[in-house]
Design a protein around this nucleic acid. Structure first.
Length: 452
DNA sequence: ATGTAC
Protein backbone atom coordinates (compact mmCIF):
# COMPACT_ATOMS: atom_id res chain seq x y z
CA UNK A 1 0.00 0.00 0.00
CA UNK A 2 1.15 3.50 -0.80
CA UNK A 3 1.60 6.51 1.39
CA UNK A 4 1.80 10.02 -0.03
CA UNK A 5 3.16 13.05 1.80
CA UNK A 6 2.67 16.65 0.75
CA UNK A 7 5.74 18.75 1.53
CA UNK A 8 8.12 21.25 -0.02
CA UNK A 9 11.92 21.11 0.25
CA UNK A 10 12.03 22.92 3.60
CA UNK A 11 9.33 20.80 5.25
CA UNK A 12 10.80 17.64 3.76
CA UNK A 13 13.94 18.06 5.86
CA UNK A 14 11.82 17.97 9.02
CA UNK A 15 10.47 14.53 8.10
CA UNK A 16 13.76 12.96 9.05
CA UNK A 17 13.76 14.41 12.55
CA UNK A 18 11.06 12.12 13.93
CA UNK A 19 9.25 8.82 13.37
CA UNK A 20 6.34 10.20 11.35
CA UNK A 21 7.37 8.62 8.04
CA UNK A 22 7.70 5.21 9.61
CA UNK A 23 4.36 5.62 11.36
CA UNK A 24 2.66 6.50 8.08
CA UNK A 25 4.12 3.45 6.37
CA UNK A 26 3.02 1.28 9.31
CA UNK A 27 -0.53 2.58 9.02
CA UNK A 28 -0.58 1.70 5.33
CA UNK A 29 -0.21 -1.96 6.29
CA UNK A 30 -3.51 -2.18 8.19
CA UNK A 31 -6.27 -4.35 6.70
CA UNK A 32 -8.71 -2.52 4.43
CA UNK A 33 -6.64 0.62 3.89
CA UNK A 34 -7.61 2.43 0.71
CA UNK A 35 -4.43 3.81 -0.72
CA UNK A 36 -2.83 6.12 -0.35
CA UNK A 37 -2.45 6.92 3.33
CA UNK A 38 -1.91 10.67 3.36
CA UNK A 39 0.64 12.80 5.21
CA UNK A 40 -0.20 16.49 5.42
CA UNK A 41 2.47 19.25 5.21
CA UNK A 42 2.22 19.71 8.99
CA UNK A 43 2.87 16.03 9.72
CA UNK A 44 4.74 15.09 12.89
CA UNK A 45 5.13 12.12 15.16
CA UNK A 46 2.14 10.97 17.17
CA UNK A 47 0.83 7.89 18.99
CA UNK A 48 0.12 5.37 16.23
CA UNK A 49 -0.85 7.39 13.16
CA UNK A 50 1.24 10.58 12.90
CA UNK A 51 -0.49 13.89 13.51
CA UNK A 52 -1.28 15.24 10.07
CA UNK A 53 -2.37 11.79 8.87
CA UNK A 54 -5.40 10.67 6.88
CA UNK A 55 -6.28 6.98 6.65
CA UNK A 56 -9.36 5.82 4.73
CA UNK A 57 -10.63 2.30 5.33
CA UNK A 58 -13.09 0.22 3.32
CA UNK A 59 -16.13 -1.34 4.98
CA UNK A 60 -14.47 -4.70 5.53
CA UNK A 61 -11.40 -3.14 7.13
CA UNK A 62 -10.44 -2.00 10.61
CA UNK A 63 -11.05 0.93 12.94
CA UNK A 64 -8.23 2.30 15.10
CA UNK A 65 -8.39 4.55 18.18
CA UNK A 66 -4.78 5.64 17.71
CA UNK A 67 -5.63 6.84 14.21
CA UNK A 68 -8.12 9.30 15.70
CA UNK A 69 -5.94 10.36 18.59
CA UNK A 70 -6.17 10.96 22.32
CA UNK A 71 -8.09 14.19 21.95
CA UNK A 72 -11.12 12.95 20.04
CA UNK A 73 -12.66 15.79 18.01
CA UNK A 74 -10.04 18.25 18.96
CA UNK A 75 -11.13 21.01 16.61
CA UNK A 76 -11.52 24.67 15.83
CA UNK A 77 -14.39 27.11 15.77
CA UNK A 78 -14.33 30.57 14.20
CA UNK A 79 -16.66 33.41 15.24
CA UNK A 80 -16.93 36.62 13.31
CA UNK A 81 -18.10 40.00 14.54
CA UNK A 82 -18.88 43.36 12.99
CA UNK A 83 -16.27 44.97 15.25
CA UNK A 84 -13.27 46.85 13.90
CA UNK A 85 -9.88 45.90 15.30
CA UNK A 86 -8.74 49.53 15.13
CA UNK A 87 -10.75 50.23 18.32
CA UNK A 88 -9.17 47.39 20.31
CA UNK A 89 -6.27 48.80 22.30
CA UNK A 90 -4.17 46.77 24.74
CA UNK A 91 -6.16 47.86 27.75
CA UNK A 92 -9.40 46.62 26.20
CA UNK A 93 -7.80 43.36 25.07
CA UNK A 94 -6.49 42.68 28.58
CA UNK A 95 -9.95 43.29 30.01
CA UNK A 96 -11.48 40.93 27.48
CA UNK A 97 -9.12 38.02 28.08
CA UNK A 98 -9.45 38.47 31.81
CA UNK A 99 -13.23 38.29 31.48
CA UNK A 100 -13.04 35.29 29.16
CA UNK A 101 -10.93 33.51 31.77
CA UNK A 102 -13.50 34.40 34.40
CA UNK A 103 -16.15 32.46 32.46
CA UNK A 104 -14.09 29.70 30.82
CA UNK A 105 -12.00 27.46 33.09
CA UNK A 106 -8.59 26.86 31.53
CA UNK A 107 -5.78 24.41 32.24
CA UNK A 108 -5.58 20.69 32.88
CA UNK A 109 -8.01 19.13 35.32
CA UNK A 110 -10.38 22.08 35.52
CA UNK A 111 -14.09 21.55 36.07
CA UNK A 112 -16.80 23.43 34.17
CA UNK A 113 -18.66 26.37 35.69
CA UNK A 114 -21.91 25.11 34.23
CA UNK A 115 -21.58 21.66 35.76
CA UNK A 116 -24.94 22.00 37.53
CA UNK A 117 -26.62 22.05 34.11
CA UNK A 118 -24.16 19.97 32.14
CA UNK A 119 -24.50 17.02 34.53
CA UNK A 120 -28.25 17.01 33.91
CA UNK A 121 -28.01 17.23 30.11
CA UNK A 122 -24.88 15.09 29.76
CA UNK A 123 -26.67 12.00 28.47
CA UNK A 124 -28.51 14.07 25.86
CA UNK A 125 -25.31 15.91 24.88
CA UNK A 126 -23.26 12.84 24.12
CA UNK A 127 -26.07 11.20 22.13
CA UNK A 128 -27.28 14.22 20.16
CA UNK A 129 -24.47 16.75 20.32
CA UNK A 130 -24.84 20.51 20.10
CA UNK A 131 -28.61 20.36 19.62
CA UNK A 132 -28.84 19.32 23.27
CA UNK A 133 -26.77 22.22 24.61
CA UNK A 134 -28.69 24.70 22.49
CA UNK A 135 -31.91 23.34 23.97
CA UNK A 136 -30.39 24.04 27.40
CA UNK A 137 -29.83 27.69 26.44
CA UNK A 138 -26.33 27.83 24.97
CA UNK A 139 -26.72 29.55 21.63
CA UNK A 140 -29.30 29.52 18.85
CA UNK A 141 -30.77 26.75 16.73
CA UNK A 142 -29.24 28.05 13.49
CA UNK A 143 -25.74 27.54 14.92
CA UNK A 144 -26.13 23.85 14.04
CA UNK A 145 -25.82 24.59 10.33
CA UNK A 146 -22.36 26.04 10.91
CA UNK A 147 -20.84 22.96 12.51
CA UNK A 148 -19.39 19.91 10.77
CA UNK A 149 -21.96 17.07 11.00
CA UNK A 150 -24.42 19.69 12.33
CA UNK A 151 -22.69 19.30 15.67
CA UNK A 152 -23.76 15.71 16.16
CA UNK A 153 -22.30 12.47 14.82
CA UNK A 154 -24.92 9.73 14.79
CA UNK A 155 -24.27 6.35 16.33
CA UNK A 156 -23.06 7.64 19.71
CA UNK A 157 -23.87 5.38 22.62
CA UNK A 158 -22.95 6.05 26.21
CA UNK A 159 -23.28 2.39 27.08
CA UNK A 160 -19.99 1.84 25.24
CA UNK A 161 -18.26 4.40 27.48
CA UNK A 162 -16.60 3.48 30.78
CA UNK A 163 -17.96 4.85 34.04
CA UNK A 164 -14.62 6.56 34.58
CA UNK A 165 -14.83 8.44 31.28
CA UNK A 166 -18.42 9.49 32.02
CA UNK A 167 -17.49 10.86 35.41
CA UNK A 168 -14.62 12.90 33.97
CA UNK A 169 -16.81 14.15 31.12
CA UNK A 170 -19.79 15.31 33.16
CA UNK A 171 -17.68 17.80 35.07
CA UNK A 172 -15.50 19.05 32.22
CA UNK A 173 -18.02 20.25 29.67
CA UNK A 174 -17.35 23.95 29.03
CA UNK A 175 -13.61 23.94 29.80
CA UNK A 176 -10.67 24.81 27.55
CA UNK A 177 -7.94 22.44 28.72
CA UNK A 178 -4.21 22.93 28.23
CA UNK A 179 -1.47 22.24 25.70
CA UNK A 180 -2.18 23.72 22.29
CA UNK A 181 -5.77 24.64 23.16
CA UNK A 182 -6.59 28.33 23.09
CA UNK A 183 -9.10 31.10 22.69
CA UNK A 184 -7.74 33.90 20.51
CA UNK A 185 -9.02 37.34 19.67
CA UNK A 186 -7.71 37.88 16.15
CA UNK A 187 -7.72 40.54 13.46
CA UNK A 188 -8.39 39.77 9.81
CA UNK A 189 -5.00 40.72 8.43
CA UNK A 190 -5.50 40.01 4.75
CA UNK A 191 -8.23 38.87 2.42
CA UNK A 192 -6.83 36.37 -0.07
CA UNK A 193 -10.01 35.60 -2.03
CA UNK A 194 -12.51 38.46 -2.13
CA UNK A 195 -15.54 36.50 -3.24
CA UNK A 196 -15.13 33.63 -0.77
CA UNK A 197 -14.33 36.02 2.07
CA UNK A 198 -17.56 37.87 1.37
CA UNK A 199 -19.48 34.61 1.46
CA UNK A 200 -17.90 33.82 4.83
CA UNK A 201 -18.69 37.33 6.14
CA UNK A 202 -15.04 38.30 6.54
CA UNK A 203 -13.46 41.71 5.90
CA UNK A 204 -10.04 43.25 6.46
CA UNK A 205 -9.54 44.76 9.90
CA UNK A 206 -12.39 42.72 11.42
CA UNK A 207 -12.29 41.20 14.90
CA UNK A 208 -12.78 37.42 14.89
CA UNK A 209 -12.48 34.86 17.68
CA UNK A 210 -10.95 31.42 17.26
CA UNK A 211 -11.60 28.62 19.76
CA UNK A 212 -9.41 25.52 19.76
CA UNK A 213 -10.27 22.69 22.14
CA UNK A 214 -11.53 19.11 22.20
CA UNK A 215 -13.16 16.43 24.33
CA UNK A 216 -10.96 16.91 27.42
CA UNK A 217 -10.67 14.06 29.90
CA UNK A 218 -13.75 12.39 28.41
CA UNK A 219 -12.19 11.69 25.02
CA UNK A 220 -8.83 11.00 26.58
CA UNK A 221 -10.27 8.29 28.81
CA UNK A 222 -12.15 6.74 25.89
CA UNK A 223 -8.96 6.69 23.80
CA UNK A 224 -7.05 5.10 26.69
CA UNK A 225 -9.73 2.48 27.35
CA UNK A 226 -10.15 1.50 23.70
CA UNK A 227 -6.46 1.39 22.84
CA UNK A 228 -6.27 -1.47 25.33
CA UNK A 229 -9.50 -3.10 24.14
CA UNK A 230 -8.53 -2.86 20.45
CA UNK A 231 -5.01 -4.14 21.14
CA UNK A 232 -6.46 -7.29 22.69
CA UNK A 233 -9.06 -7.53 19.95
CA UNK A 234 -6.37 -7.36 17.26
CA UNK A 235 -4.74 -10.43 18.78
CA UNK A 236 -8.09 -12.20 19.01
CA UNK A 237 -8.93 -11.58 15.34
CA UNK A 238 -5.37 -12.25 14.17
CA UNK A 239 -4.74 -8.75 12.86
CA UNK A 240 -1.12 -7.78 12.52
CA UNK A 241 -0.66 -4.42 14.19
CA UNK A 242 2.85 -2.95 13.86
CA UNK A 243 2.68 -0.92 17.09
CA UNK A 244 0.31 -0.47 20.01
CA UNK A 245 -0.62 3.02 18.85
CA UNK A 246 -2.25 1.52 15.78
CA UNK A 247 -4.29 -1.03 17.76
CA UNK A 248 -7.26 -1.86 15.54
CA UNK A 249 -10.18 -4.25 15.20
CA UNK A 250 -12.57 -5.00 12.33
CA UNK A 251 -15.12 -2.21 11.97
CA UNK A 252 -17.79 -4.90 12.09
CA UNK A 253 -16.52 -6.60 15.24
CA UNK A 254 -18.02 -6.13 18.70
CA UNK A 255 -14.97 -4.14 19.81
CA UNK A 256 -14.78 -2.06 16.64
CA UNK A 257 -18.46 -1.13 16.86
CA UNK A 258 -18.11 -0.26 20.54
CA UNK A 259 -15.19 2.06 19.82
CA UNK A 260 -17.19 3.85 17.14
CA UNK A 261 -20.08 4.39 19.57
CA UNK A 262 -17.78 5.75 22.26
CA UNK A 263 -15.78 7.86 19.81
CA UNK A 264 -19.00 9.41 18.45
CA UNK A 265 -19.98 10.27 22.04
CA UNK A 266 -16.67 12.11 22.47
CA UNK A 267 -17.13 13.83 19.11
CA UNK A 268 -20.50 15.15 20.29
CA UNK A 269 -19.00 16.18 23.62
CA UNK A 270 -16.28 18.21 21.90
CA UNK A 271 -18.64 20.03 19.50
CA UNK A 272 -20.80 20.86 22.53
CA UNK A 273 -17.77 21.97 24.53
CA UNK A 274 -16.91 24.50 21.84
CA UNK A 275 -20.55 25.64 21.71
CA UNK A 276 -20.60 26.38 25.45
CA UNK A 277 -17.24 28.14 25.27
CA UNK A 278 -18.51 30.27 22.38
CA UNK A 279 -21.50 31.25 24.51
CA UNK A 280 -19.19 32.23 27.39
CA UNK A 281 -16.85 34.21 25.12
CA UNK A 282 -19.79 36.22 23.80
CA UNK A 283 -20.88 36.88 27.38
CA UNK A 284 -17.39 38.22 28.17
CA UNK A 285 -17.56 40.61 25.20
CA UNK A 286 -21.06 41.71 26.30
CA UNK A 287 -19.81 42.47 29.83
CA UNK A 288 -16.80 44.49 28.73
CA UNK A 289 -18.18 46.29 25.67
CA UNK A 290 -21.65 46.69 27.22
CA UNK A 291 -23.42 45.69 24.03
CA UNK A 292 -25.49 42.67 23.04
CA UNK A 293 -23.75 39.93 21.07
CA UNK A 294 -26.26 40.56 18.24
CA UNK A 295 -25.33 44.22 18.00
CA UNK A 296 -21.64 43.24 17.93
CA UNK A 297 -22.44 41.02 14.96
CA UNK A 298 -21.34 37.75 16.58
CA UNK A 299 -21.93 34.84 14.22
CA UNK A 300 -20.48 31.35 14.07
CA UNK A 301 -18.56 31.02 10.77
CA UNK A 302 -17.79 27.31 11.09
CA UNK A 303 -16.60 24.56 13.42
CA UNK A 304 -14.36 21.75 12.17
CA UNK A 305 -13.03 18.56 13.70
CA UNK A 306 -9.32 17.83 13.46
CA UNK A 307 -9.35 14.37 15.09
CA UNK A 308 -12.17 12.11 14.01
CA UNK A 309 -13.17 8.95 12.15
CA UNK A 310 -16.37 9.03 10.13
CA UNK A 311 -18.18 7.49 7.21
CA UNK A 312 -17.94 9.36 3.95
CA UNK A 313 -18.46 8.60 0.27
CA UNK A 314 -15.29 8.80 -1.83
CA UNK A 315 -15.15 7.69 -5.43
CA UNK A 316 -18.54 6.04 -5.00
CA UNK A 317 -17.35 3.94 -2.07
CA UNK A 318 -18.38 4.22 1.57
CA UNK A 319 -15.16 4.67 3.56
CA UNK A 320 -14.33 5.17 7.22
CA UNK A 321 -11.99 8.16 7.01
CA UNK A 322 -9.69 8.56 10.00
CA UNK A 323 -8.35 12.10 10.25
CA UNK A 324 -5.78 12.81 12.90
CA UNK A 325 -4.58 16.37 12.75
CA UNK A 326 -6.32 16.94 9.45
CA UNK A 327 -9.36 18.96 8.42
CA UNK A 328 -12.18 17.99 6.11
CA UNK A 329 -12.45 20.49 3.26
CA UNK A 330 -15.33 19.91 0.85
CA UNK A 331 -15.20 21.82 -2.43
CA UNK A 332 -17.83 24.13 -3.90
CA UNK A 333 -20.94 22.26 -4.96
CA UNK A 334 -20.28 19.13 -2.89
CA UNK A 335 -23.63 17.82 -1.60
CA UNK A 336 -22.36 17.31 1.94
CA UNK A 337 -21.72 21.03 2.37
CA UNK A 338 -24.08 22.87 4.72
CA UNK A 339 -26.69 24.77 2.70
CA UNK A 340 -25.18 28.15 3.50
CA UNK A 341 -21.82 27.11 2.01
CA UNK A 342 -23.06 24.99 -0.88
CA UNK A 343 -21.77 27.36 -3.55
CA UNK A 344 -18.49 28.24 -1.88
CA UNK A 345 -17.46 25.05 -0.12
CA UNK A 346 -17.35 25.21 3.67
CA UNK A 347 -14.58 27.07 5.49
CA UNK A 348 -11.68 24.88 6.68
CA UNK A 349 -9.95 26.43 9.68
CA UNK A 350 -6.18 26.25 10.14
CA UNK A 351 -4.81 27.77 13.33
CA UNK A 352 -1.14 28.69 13.40
CA UNK A 353 0.90 28.74 16.58
CA UNK A 354 0.10 31.52 19.02
CA UNK A 355 1.92 34.63 17.96
CA UNK A 356 1.72 33.84 14.24
CA UNK A 357 -1.03 33.74 11.64
CA UNK A 358 -4.07 31.50 11.21
CA UNK A 359 -5.89 30.74 7.96
CA UNK A 360 -9.28 29.94 6.57
CA UNK A 361 -9.17 28.01 3.30
CA UNK A 362 -11.55 25.98 1.14
CA UNK A 363 -10.90 22.70 -0.60
CA UNK A 364 -11.03 22.27 -4.37
CA UNK A 365 -12.16 19.39 -6.59
CA UNK A 366 -8.54 18.31 -6.63
CA UNK A 367 -8.76 17.69 -2.88
CA UNK A 368 -10.44 14.41 -3.83
CA UNK A 369 -6.90 12.99 -3.87
CA UNK A 370 -6.63 13.62 -0.10
CA UNK A 371 -10.16 12.38 0.63
CA UNK A 372 -11.11 16.06 0.85
CA UNK A 373 -8.68 16.73 3.65
CA UNK A 374 -6.27 19.57 4.32
CA UNK A 375 -3.71 20.36 7.00
CA UNK A 376 -4.93 21.34 10.47
CA UNK A 377 -2.29 23.73 11.73
CA UNK A 378 1.35 24.65 11.53
CA UNK A 379 2.50 21.34 12.97
CA UNK A 380 4.90 20.89 15.83
CA UNK A 381 8.60 21.11 14.92
CA UNK A 382 10.21 20.66 18.35
CA UNK A 383 9.13 18.05 20.90
CA UNK A 384 7.61 19.50 24.05
CA UNK A 385 10.76 18.67 25.98
CA UNK A 386 13.02 20.44 23.51
CA UNK A 387 10.69 23.41 23.29
CA UNK A 388 10.71 23.82 27.08
CA UNK A 389 14.35 24.91 26.72
CA UNK A 390 13.44 28.02 24.73
CA UNK A 391 14.74 31.09 26.58
CA UNK A 392 12.60 33.93 27.87
CA UNK A 393 14.19 36.34 25.37
CA UNK A 394 13.51 34.06 22.41
CA UNK A 395 9.97 33.45 23.59
CA UNK A 396 9.12 37.12 24.00
CA UNK A 397 10.66 38.05 20.69
CA UNK A 398 8.58 35.41 18.91
CA UNK A 399 5.38 36.61 20.59
CA UNK A 400 5.94 40.22 19.50
CA UNK A 401 3.00 42.42 20.48
CA UNK A 402 0.57 39.58 21.10
CA UNK A 403 -1.04 39.75 24.54
CA UNK A 404 -1.36 36.53 26.51
CA UNK A 405 -2.91 35.52 29.77
CA UNK A 406 -0.27 33.23 31.17
CA UNK A 407 1.91 34.70 33.89
CA UNK A 408 5.06 32.66 33.42
CA UNK A 409 6.45 32.08 29.94
CA UNK A 410 7.80 28.74 31.20
CA UNK A 411 4.29 27.33 31.37
CA UNK A 412 3.77 27.85 27.65
CA UNK A 413 7.29 27.83 26.20
CA UNK A 414 6.43 24.51 24.54
CA UNK A 415 3.65 26.36 22.70
CA UNK A 416 5.98 29.07 21.46
CA UNK A 417 5.90 29.89 17.75
CA UNK A 418 9.49 28.62 17.70
CA UNK A 419 8.24 25.13 18.58
CA UNK A 420 6.12 25.05 15.40
CA UNK A 421 6.69 24.92 11.68
CA UNK A 422 6.11 28.01 9.60
CA UNK A 423 2.35 28.10 8.95
CA UNK A 424 2.84 30.13 5.75
CA UNK A 425 5.09 27.41 4.42
CA UNK A 426 2.62 24.68 5.43
CA UNK A 427 -0.40 26.41 3.87
CA UNK A 428 1.45 27.19 0.64
CA UNK A 429 2.13 23.50 -0.10
CA UNK A 430 -1.51 22.58 -0.64
CA UNK A 431 -2.25 25.90 -2.31
CA UNK A 432 0.46 25.27 -4.91
CA UNK A 433 -0.90 21.79 -5.43
CA UNK A 434 -4.32 23.45 -6.00
CA UNK A 435 -5.91 21.43 -3.23
CA UNK A 436 -6.86 24.54 -1.28
CA UNK A 437 -7.77 28.15 -1.96
CA UNK A 438 -6.67 30.41 0.91
CA UNK A 439 -9.48 32.83 1.77
CA UNK A 440 -8.20 34.95 4.63
CA UNK A 441 -5.32 35.24 7.05
CA UNK A 442 -5.74 36.25 10.67
CA UNK A 443 -3.22 37.53 13.20
CA UNK A 444 -3.66 37.12 16.94
CA UNK A 445 -4.14 40.17 19.14
CA UNK A 446 -4.72 38.39 22.45
CA UNK A 447 -4.42 34.74 23.46
CA UNK A 448 -6.02 32.79 26.30
CA UNK A 449 -4.02 29.65 27.01
CA UNK A 450 -4.60 26.96 29.57
CA UNK A 451 -1.76 26.99 32.07
CA UNK A 452 -1.69 27.83 35.73
C1' DA B 1 -3.83 15.81 24.26
C1' DT B 2 -4.21 14.11 29.62
C1' DG B 3 -6.95 14.24 37.38
C1' DT B 4 0.98 14.64 32.53
C1' DA B 5 3.03 6.91 34.95
C1' DC B 6 2.08 0.48 35.22
Amino acid sequence: MDAVIYVNDTLKELLYEDQSLKQLVNAASLPGVVEPVIGMPDIHEGFGLPIGGVMAIEEKGVISAGAVGYDINCGVRLLRTSLEAAYFNKELLYKLIERIEYYVPTGIGKKGKHKGITRVIFDDVVHRGVEAVIKAGFGKKSDLEYIEENGGLSGADLSAVSKEAQERGEEQLGTLGGGNHFIEIQRVDSILDEKLARQFGLFKGQIVVMIHTGSRGFGHQIATDYTKILWEAAKKYGIEVPEKGLAAAPIDSKEGKAYYKAMAAAVNFAFSNRQIIMFDVMKAFEDILKKSSESMGFQLVYDVAHNIAKWEIHGGRRLLVHRKGATRALPAGHPQNPSFYKESGHPALIPGSMGTGSYVVVGTEKAAETFYSVNHGAGRRLSRNKAKKISKEEFEKAMGDVIYNVRSYKDIADESPLAYKDVEEVVSVLEKREITIPVARFVPLAVVKGAD
